[in-house]
Design a protein around this nucleic acid. Sequence first.
DNA 1: GCTGGCTCTGTAAGCGCTTACCGGTAAGCG
DNA 2: CGCTTACCGGTAAGCGCTTACAGAGCCAGC
Lengths: 368, 368
Amino acid sequence: MAEPKKARATLTIYDVASRAGVSIASVSRVLNGLGSPRAETRERVMQAVRELSFVPDGAARALSNGLKEVVGVVFRRGGEELFEGEDESFLYIDVINRGIEVGAQRRGFDLLISSVGFNDDNVAARIAALAGKADGLILHDRMLSAVGIARLADMVPVVTLAGSPTPTSLNVRCDNEFGIRALVRHMVIDHGYRSLGYVTGRADSPDNRTRLRAFEAEAVAAGAEIETGPAWQGNYSAAGGANVVASLLNAGRKLPRAILCANDQTALGVMHALAQRGIRVPQDVAITGFDDVPVARHLHPPLTTIRQPMQELGAKAFEILYSRISAGGGKPDTVLPVELVVRESCGCASGSSPASSAALAARDGQKG
Amino acid sequence: MAEPKKARATLTIYDVASRAGVSIASVSRVLNGLGSPRAETRERVMQAVRELSFVPDGAARALSNGLKEVVGVVFRRGGEELFEGEDESFLYIDVINRGIEVGAQRRGFDLLISSVGFNDDNVAARIAALAGKADGLILHDRMLSAVGIARLADMVPVVTLAGSPTPTSLNVRCDNEFGIRALVRHMVIDHGYRSLGYVTGRADSPDNRTRLRAFEAEAVAAGAEIETGPAWQGNYSAAGGANVVASLLNAGRKLPRAILCANDQTALGVMHALAQRGIRVPQDVAITGFDDVPVARHLHPPLTTIRQPMQELGAKAFEILYSRISAGGGKPDTVLPVELVVRESCGCASGSSPASSAALAARDGQKG
DNA sequence: GCTGGCTCTGTAAGCGCTTACCGGTAAGCG
DNA sequence: CGCTTACCGGTAAGCGCTTACAGAGCCAGC
C-alpha cells in the first residue's frame, strides 16, 4: 500500500521485465506458457505482473502474431416503423449472438459487435472499419447485397447467417423448408384446417423466399387452400404483421382458418391486431410463428412455432469462421435442423401431446 | 476482372503505396484525411485502395496511435436456474448495450462484448484479457467486487453501471429511490392498497438495497403495512419471482393486496406463478415491475413499472468513459431520472390517464 | 537571377509484443 | 577432467501503422 500507484503511462512488458529482473522475452514466455522457464523465473515474472497489475496490450499482441482473437458481428437494428415504439426486433438476433459468443469463448475470441441502422448511409464503410479490427466477420441476414458480401469477403473471412454462400464467403442457416412443411402438415392434417394464409417476411430475404415456396408447395400437397399475394406481405416485424391483418380486415376480406407467420415477431403483431378486433386465437383463427423466440411461450395463447436452434446457429457460425481463419477452406453452406414446437395458438390444448402424425411424417420425409 | 486476386497474404499499406506510386506516409495521410495531399495524389491512393480492397489493420493502427477505438462491455449471462429453460434474463442488458453502442458509434468506437457465466471460474482473467483488447471497460451490475473493480480500474478506465464509484472507477445509475417511491405512492395513495409486499433482487446488488430501503421508508410514510423478510428474497430472475410466490402460497401465507417486484423479470415470474394458482392480476393481487423491458407491455395484463432510460444509461456510460479515456477525470457518480409507467397490472383501467396525485407528489418530492 | 518561404512528399523511428536465433551455463559422458 | 549436449534466457528483428522531421519543388520578391 506504500507502493506509489504507477502513473497511467502505459505499462509495458519492459516494466514487468525490469521489475522481475529478467528479459522481455522471458516475460512473454511466462505469460504465454511457452518454452520451459525455470520455476523461479516464472514466479518472479508472475509476482511482478501481479504487483503492477499488468495486462498485455491486445493490439501489440495482435500485430505481432497476426491474430486479434476478435470476431466482428454485424446485424441490423430495428429501423422500420417500430411496433408501439419499441425495438423487440432484436430478440432473436441476441440469441444468435449469444451462441456466437459461446463458441468464441471456447477459442479465446471476443465479439466486436456493430449494429447497422436501417437507413444508415455509410454501412459499407462501417463494416470495413469493423473488418479491420477483427479476424473475421459474421453477418446476420440482409446486411449486404451478394456483391457487397463478395467484396467484403475479399478482405476478410466472412460467414453469413441465413443467407447464401458466395464464391468467397460461407453460410450457415436453418432448415426452413422442413420447418414450414411440418407446420403446414400440423395445421392441415392434425387440425384439419382447410384454408391457410401466410404472412411473409421481407421480400429481399432468402429465408423468406424459401419459406414461402415451402408453404405453397406443402399446402397444395396437403390439399389446403392458400391465400398469398401482396396483401400478405409482412416484413419480419410485429408492425408488419399487424398491418397485414388490419388491411385485410379493413378491406372486408375473410381471414383463413389458420395463419402462418414468417417469424414470431410477425405472429406477435398478428395476434395483437386480432385481439384488437376481438378475433379469438385459436378458436377463430389459428396462428403459428417461426423462430421460437423467448417471449413466444409467454404470449396468450402460447405460440406454436418452429424452434430454430439459434444459439447453436451462432456457435456453428463461429466454428466455421474459426476454421476458415485458422485453416482456410470450409463448407460453403451448412444447414441446421429445426423442430416443431406445439403450444396452444394452433388450437392444441394446453399440455396435450405434440407428437402428431403430420410432424412425424414431415420428419420422416426429411430423413428419407 | 482480369486482375488476379491478390492472395490472402495480408495486404498492407506498402502494397497500396507501391501500386499508387507514392509513399506509405501519403497513403496514411489520405486515409486519415490529414495534411493536404494534392488532388492527384489523393485520387491515386483511393484508386489503389479500391482496386485492392484494402482495409487498414486495426491492431497496427491501435498500436501506433495508442487508441483502439474499442470499448469492452462485460455482463452476466443467465446462470441461475433458468425459468422454463430460457434466458430471458438478458433482456434489459441488451437494451443498455444498445445504448452503449449508439454512444460508441458517434465516436467511431465498437463494442467488444463478453458475458460471464454465473459460475465461470476465471472471470477476472477473462475480464483482464478483454481489458487488453479495449481502451476502457463498462461493467454491468454485479460483475466484480468493489475490490476487484478497483484493481481493474488500475489497468484501464472503468465505468460501472448501477453500482457505486470506487476511487478509480466511475459509475452511472438510475434514480431507484425515486422510482420505488413513485410506485409505492401510486399503489397506496391512488389505489388505496393497504398491504404491500416487495420481492427483492439479489442481496448483493447495490441497486437492490437502495430499492428495498426506499420501499420500506415510503410505504411506512404512506401508512401501509409491508411484508418483507427472507421469504421475499428474489434474485432478479423470473424463476426467483415465481419461487417466492410458490413458497409463500405453499406455506399457507396470505398474499398482500399488492406486490412490488425488484424488476420486470421478477414480476414476470410472479405473474406466471399467480396465474398457475388461478390468482387474478390485478383483481386479487396487483403487481408492478421495475425497468420497463420491452416485453412488459405485452404481458397480461400489461405491466405497470418504472421506466429506466436504459438506452440513455448506456449512452451516458459510454460518454463518461470516453471523456475519461480522452481527458481523464470525470464525474464519479451520475444519476439519471426514471419515470412511472402506468399500465394495467396495478389495477388501473386500460387507457386510463396515468397522471396521478401520487406520482406528481413523488416527482415534486424529488425536485424539492 | 537568386534566395526565402511554402507546400507537399518521403524517410525513418517508434508503438508493445512475439519469436528466431544465438550465447552461456550446467549436466552427462568418455 | 575436458568436451558434447541440452536447456534457459537474452538480443534483436519484425508485425502494419502513424507522424516528426527533413528534403524537394515551386513561387514571389528583391
